[in-house]
């Protein structure tokens, strides 16, 4: 086996069970299964006490109440010790007045980071990239976002993605580009000639037979 094959990070796959873990966090030892029945956003950051990560943590704390309204928990991760995490979140509270309300995994042995493909050697051999994994209440991985070290994440997009996934699950629909809650949704594309005819008679906004939109009640 070549060295390149050994070091290639493994990536989890959408719509498969999220990789299981038990990890030390700032709120004690948690397992992925502790989050069942809730949605979970597992996200990694490169390192504590770094500028972009600090802005992201404040932003995650700001959207936490909105996430809770949607039944979503947050779980951070970096390859730092729990003491570093504690010192950093205390610093954020003291200097910036923001309390970080969610736990952070201290993944010093990279056990979780490896399972989720968070360490990508082309970006950094020692730090996790800015990854986001959305895991549903059944423990299935539903969405992944990877950002580079230089670019802070967009919290509104993360909220929008949660809203879109929950809307799709609840109403069996898809959501178009730039969809926001309240906008029209897309009726799943028909798979048979009969379904095409039925969609055309259903009162949807028909752009063409394969693209029908409707408002949610």
């Amino acid at each position: 086996m070549s060295e390149e094959m050994v070091t290639t990070p493994t990536l989890p796959r959408l719509n498969e069970p999220a990789p299981d873990f038990e990890a030390v966090t700032t709120h004690g030892v948690v397992r992925l299964s502790d989050f069942r029945d809730s949605w979970l956003i597992l996200f990694s950051h490169p390192a504590d006490f770094t500028p972009v990560c600090t802005t992201e943590f404040i932003a995650f704390a700001e959207i936490y109440p909105e996430l809770q309204k949607r039944g979503v928990e947050l779980l951070g991760l970096s390859i730092d010790s729990v003491y570093s995490h504690i010192a950093w979140i205390r610093n954020i509270q003291e200097k910036m007045g923001v309390k970080i309300p969610f736990p952070i995994i201290a993944d010093l042995d990279r056990a979780v980071a490896t399972k989720y493909g968070m360490v990508q050697p082309g970006a950094s051999k020692t730090e996790a990239v800015r990854a986001v994994f959305i895991i549903d209440p059944k423990g299935v991985l539903r969405a992944m976002i990877y950002y580079p070290l230089t670019t802070g994440r967009n919290m509104q997009e993360i909220l929008r993605l949660i809203d879109a996934l929950q809307t799709s699950d609840k109403h069996n629909v898809a959501t178009p580009a730039n969809w926001q809650p309240g906008d029209k949704v897309i009726v799943p594309a028909p798979k048979t000639v009969e379904m095409v005819e039925e969609n055309l008679k259903a009162g949807y906004e028909v752009v063409d037979w394969y693209l029908c939109k409707r408002r949610l009640e």
Binding site: G28, V29, V30, R31, S33, D34, S38, E73, P103
Partner: peptide, 12 residues
């Protein structure tokens, strides 16, 4: 308390 935290505490 959040459910995940309760499950973790119960285990401990």
């Amino acid at each position: 308390l959040p459910l995940f935290r309760v499950r973790s505490s119960l285990r401990e």
